[in-house]
Write a protein that binds this DNA or RNA. Structure first.
Length: 406
DNA sequence: ATTCCACCGGAACGTGTGGGAT
DNA sequence: ATCCCACACGTTCCGGTGGAAT
């Protein structure tokens, strides 16, 4: 279709556009993992967490902490910030403090968490092969022979607990019995306020020695945060306050999620850059809104196993035009799809779990209801635009023959 | 007040893949 | 070479349940 020259010309254009663009001065500060030097409107939490962890500078084990707050309320940022400062201070004082940040959404099994813990003590463990108990023993031995205070941050801890229970937490909180030269203290972070309820009371009391709550940012605070960050990120002429306000307002609608707001700002900037515009406009923000959604959904769907995609395709078909469907109907249709492409179907039990997974991923909404005499089921509807789903599913060659009805 | 549907959802277990430790 | 291990994905078995219908 296109010659090498065409392609190279297009690339040249893209490259030169980015190179001559002066929208950003430093886009890094808008990335989600960036920790700023100042965290406005979180002074109180910083001070409190700082005072909780400070005893480690005198060789005492800090209390365990449980941190609650909705997404994008600064839990992770504040924790990382305080730990960074603490660590710097410790180095300055010649103290040995080991810090370990683990996100249990990514490392959601006991074994993988232990692996990460071991890494922080410079112990390399195989990713499979040895038993969890053995891995734990080795980690403790390595830590104890190294000595020092270890501060462990378990972010999104609800994922670990949901999958593996609180066994590891229990052992970690009681690790003092097995350690002579070192101590472990734990900071658990979650946005699931109900989490504690189904925790072993012993774990609850030791892990929640101190509890902290992060309230959501309001629209004014959000705007202030964005303005400060934008000042560092953007060329002063490339963006004006009304665009920033728009980002803040859109994010405030979603319970004051600062991460979303910053994402929005960054992606809007990138779109402006790609389009060769010299300023970021409100229109770019709206486009960013769509692009973020599209990327997220696309990413999730693309990496799903075949049967999950087939279930999703069934839901898509049965809810065309914003309708609703039920588990039984999805299963029936799903089975017909399987026979159409000549593969074996999974059981309804499994499909039920897949529906749950799709719900968790935010692709669909599934709510358990009772229809009285007509049984209990889930009513299911699509939670994202149809065209995004269709477009992504089309990329899977296995599904090709099934996507002709649109 | 009971019945009973159409599933829900917990638990234990199986299989295949990619790996130890000795 | 032999035996053990983690993990994703799936199965089998089965008790549980909200509320319309009777």
């Amino acid at each position: 279709m296109s010659t090498d020259n065409d392609v190279s010309a297009v690339l040249d254009k893209v490259f030169s556009q980015i190179l001559k663009s002066n929208i950003f001065i430093n886009r890094e500060v808008l990335r989600p993992d960036y920790i700023p030097d100042e965290l406005p409107h979180r002074e109180e939490q910083i001070a409190k967490l700082g005072s909780i962890l400070a005893p480690s500078l005198r060789g005492y084990r800090p209390s365990n902490v449980f941190i609650y707050g909705l997404t994008g309320t600064g839990k992770t940022a504040v924790t990382k910030y305080v730990i960074k400062k603490l660590y710097n201070k410790a180095v300055e004082l010649g103290l040995d403090i080991i810090h370990c940040y683990i996100n249990t959404r990514q490392d959601d099994t006991t074994y993988r968490v232990i692996l990460r813990l071991a890494e922080c003590t410079n112990l390399r463990l195989p990713f499979t092969g040895i038993s969890t108990a053995e891995a734990y023993r080795r980690f403790l031995r390595a830590l104890d022979s190294r000595g020092g205070i270890m501060i462990v941050v378990l972010d999104e801890i609800d994922f670990l607990i949901k999958r593996q229970g609180d066994e590891l937490l229990y052992r970690l909180t009681r690790s003092g019995d097995e350690l002579h030269n070192s101590k472990i203290s734990i900071i658990g972070i979650t946005n699931d306020l109900k989490l504690v309820e189904d925790l072993d009371p012993r774990v609850r009391s030791s892990l929640g020695e101190i509890e902290m709550v992060f309230p959501p940012y309001n629209a004014i605070q959000l705007e202030d945060i964005l303005k400060r960050r934008a000042k560092m990120a953007f060329n002063p002429n490339a963006i004006d306050n009304s665009v920033i306000s728009l980002c803040a307002a859109l994010a405030a609608r979603e319970h004051g999620d600062a991460r979303r707001a910053l994402d929005l700002l960054r992606v809007a900037g990138e779109i402006a850059e790609r389009e060769g515009s010299t300023v970021v406009t409100r229109d770019h923000v709206y486009k960013a809104l769509k692009e973020i959604e599209r990327d997220r959904v696309g990413e999730v769907i693309m990496t799903m196993p075949l049967h999950s995609k087939l279930v999703l395709l069934s839901i898509l078909y049965l809810t065309r035009g914003g309708g609703k469907t039920t588990t039984g109907d999805v299963y029936t249709y799903y089975k017909s799809l399987c026979s159409k492409i000549g593969i074996e179907s999974v059981t309804q039990r499994r499909v039920s779990d897949i529906i749950g997974e799709l719900d968790m991923a935010g692709i669909i909404t599934a709510k358990v209801i009772s229809r009285g005499r007509y049984g209990k089921t889930r009513i299911i509807s699509l939670a994202v635009p149809e065209d995004i789903v269709i477009k992504t599913l089309k990329e899977d060659p296995y599904l090709e023959p099934l996507l002709s009805w649109d």
